[in-house]
Simulated scan of single mutants.
Amino acid sequence: MTDEIDDVVDAVMTASRAMLSVVARSLAAAGEPSGGSAGEVTLPQYRALVVLAQHGTRRPADLATALAVSASTATRMCDRLVGRGLVERARTGDDRREVALVLSPAGRALVDEVTRLRRAEMHRLLATLPAAERVAVRDALRRFADAAGEVGETDWAVAPLGTEGGAR
């Protein structure tokens, strides 16, 4: 049983490197609408943008939890994203100390462009597989994503800006 699981782990690790390469290439190829280069956005920063796209407005502490980083790391990351115009800070309620983070229109445009580029490359790669293998890959990856607690692609890609909780 352990050898079987190790073999699957090896296959998933290899596939995850391939998928990470697709993300990195897509991020590098996407241009920020503000005229900058998406290459200036790191993969961890991009992940923060994706979390905000998936879940809508977040408190910095909630974003830190979702990214599995310290609160200070999330704050520094958001400072950079705010500086690039990709994330906005908003005061919540009457407590001026409480801040919420929301994806800006420029941040949404970047996530949408990177997603478009990723989908195009994934389409090209998957088109090389026979139809039956594509179905098997789809089913296995859906179960894997469910086990990891990931939101389905079509569920988060349409989450409106600034929503509490986003689409689920």
Rank of each mutant, 00 (worst) to 15 (best):
Ile5Gln: 05
Asp6Tyr: 02
Asp6Ser: 12
Asp7Leu: 14
Val8Leu: 15
Val8Met: 14
Val9Met: 13
Val9Glu: 11
Asp10Glu: 15
Asp10Trp: 12
Ala11Val: 15
Val12Thr: 10
Val12Tyr: 08
Met13Asn: 06
Ala15Leu: 15
Ser16Glu: 13
Met19Ile: 13
Met19His: 08
Met19Glu: 13
Leu20Pro: 00
Val22Met: 06
Val23Arg: 09
Val23Gln: 11
Ala24Asp: 14
Arg25Gly: 05
Ser26Pro: 07
Ser26Leu: 10
Ala28Tyr: 03
Ala28Lys: 05
Ala29Lys: 06
Ala30Asp: 02
Ala30Leu: 05
Ala30Ser: 14
Gly31Met: 07
Glu32Tyr: 00
Pro33Arg: 13
Ser34Phe: 01
Gly35Phe: 09
Ser37Phe: 09
Ala38Leu: 03
Ala38Glu: 02
Ala38Cys: 10
Ala38Gln: 02
Glu40His: 03
Glu40Leu: 09
Val41Tyr: 01
Thr42Asp: 08
Leu43Met: 08
Pro44Ser: 11
Gln45His: 06
Tyr46Val: 04
Ala48Glu: 07
Leu49Glu: 05
Val51Tyr: 02
Leu52Thr: 09
Leu52Val: 10
Leu52Ile: 12
Leu52Tyr: 11
Ala53Pro: 04
Ala53Glu: 11
Gln54Cys: 10
His55Cys: 02
His55Pro: 00
Gly56Leu: 08
Arg58Ala: 10
Pro60Asp: 06
Pro60Arg: 04
Asp62Asn: 02
Asp62Thr: 08
Leu63Pro: 06
Leu63Gly: 08
Ala64Ser: 11
Ala64Thr: 07
Ala66Ile: 03
Ala66Asn: 02
Ala66His: 06
Leu67Tyr: 11
Leu67Gly: 05
Leu67Pro: 04
Ala68Tyr: 04
Ala68Lys: 06
Val69Gly: 01
Val69Arg: 07
Ala71Ser: 12
Ala71Phe: 06
Thr73Glu: 12
Thr73Pro: 00
Met77Asn: 01
Met77Tyr: 06
Cys78Pro: 01
Asp79Val: 12
Arg80Asp: 13
Arg80Ala: 15
